[in-house]
Design a protein around this nucleic acid. Sequence first.
DNA 1: ACTTTCTTTCAAATTCTTTTGAAAGTTCGG
DNA 2: CCGAACTTTCAAAAGAATTTGAAAGAAAGT
Lengths: 168, 168
Amino acid sequence: MKFTDAKAQFIQAWGSLGAQWGINRTMAQIHALLLIAPNALSADEIMEELNISRGNTNMNVRELINWGIVDKVLVPGERKEYFSAEKDIWKVGTAIARERKKRELDPILKVLNALQSVEGDQKDKHVKAFRDAISNINRFAQQTDATLNAFIKAEENWFYSTLLKVFK
Amino acid sequence: MKFTDAKAQFIQAWGSLGAQWGINRTMAQIHALLLIAPNALSADEIMEELNISRGNTNMNVRELINWGIVDKVLVPGERKEYFSAEKDIWKVGTAIARERKKRELDPILKVLNALQSVEGDQKDKHVKAFRDAISNINRFAQQTDATLNAFIKAEENWFYSTLLKVFK
DNA sequence: ACTTTCTTTCAAATTCTTTTGAAAGTTCGG
DNA sequence: CCGAACTTTCAAAAGAATTTGAAAGAAAGT
C-alpha cells in the first residue's frame, strides 16, 4: 500500500471511530492527522490537508486541547501557532476516559442518586419495579465509576513512575 | 420526589446518556421505559408513554432486540406483541460491550492491520512517524480487544455458572 | 498609533439524522 | 379466501449537528 493511501485511510478510519463515539468526525480527523505527523502542524496546514474551513479547524483544535490530547506549540521567532498530538496512546486513552466519564457517567450518577429517594407505596408494583431497577443500575454505575477511576489513576501512576525513572 | 417525576427524569437521563453514546435517544428511552416497567409493554403502550409514532417505536424496538437487551414476549391468547427488557444490568452491560466492539473496535483492528504493510522508505520521516504511530495504536487496540473479550467472556461464564446452579 | 499577520467568533447555510404517518404487508380466525 | 388486528416499511418532513466564511479581535513589529 502506498503511503498517501495509507494516510488517507487512517484518517478516515479514525474519523468514523470518533463519530461512533460521539466525538465529531472532524475533531477525530484532525487528531488522526496530528497523530501521524512527524512534527507540529499549523492551522493552515490542517485546513489544507483536510479541506476544511478555518473556523472549523479552530473550533476542533481548541476542543482537542481541552481534552488534553493536543498541545499548542510555539516555535520561537514564528508568529503562527503550531499543534501537536500526544503520541503516547495510553495517555490518549486515559484522557478520553477521563473526559467521557466527566461528561457522561458523573451526571447519571447524580440523577440516580436523586432518584433513590422516590416517594413510595411499596404495594404499587410500578413503584417497586422502579426502585429495584434504579438500585441495580446504581450499583452497576458505582462499580463502573470505580473501575474507570482505577484505570485513570493507574495510568497517572504509571506515568509518574516512568517519569521518576527518567530523572533518577 | 413523586413517582411520576422520577420516572420522567430517569427516562430523560437514560435518553441523553444513550445519545452521547451514539445510541439514538428514542432507542435509549424505550429501553429506560422497559427497564422500570413491572411487566411487558405493547407497542401502543410505548407510543403512548413516550409520545412517539408507531414507525419510530417499531424501528427502535427492533434494534433493541437486535442488541439482545429486549425480548418479544408473546402472551397466550393475545394477538399483540409485548416487549420486556433484560433486567440484569450486567447482562445489559456486556451486551452493549459486545455490540459496540463488533461495530467499532473490530473494523479499526482490520484497518490497522492492513496499514502496517505501508510501503516504506525508512528515511522519509513522514513514513517513519506513520509507522510508529500505527504500530503503537495497534498494540493499544489489541490490548483493548483482549480486555473487552475478557469482560464479555467473564460475564458469559458467570451466567453459565449461575444457570448451572439453577438446574443442579 | 498603524499595519500586518494571525486567531476567534458566530449567524447563516449546509449536511446528516431522526421521526412521522400513511400505505403495504402479515397473520390468523372463521 | 376474506376481513380484522396488528406490524413493517419508507419517502417526505422535521429537527439536530456541523461547517462555512466574513467580520471582529489580538498580538507584534515598526
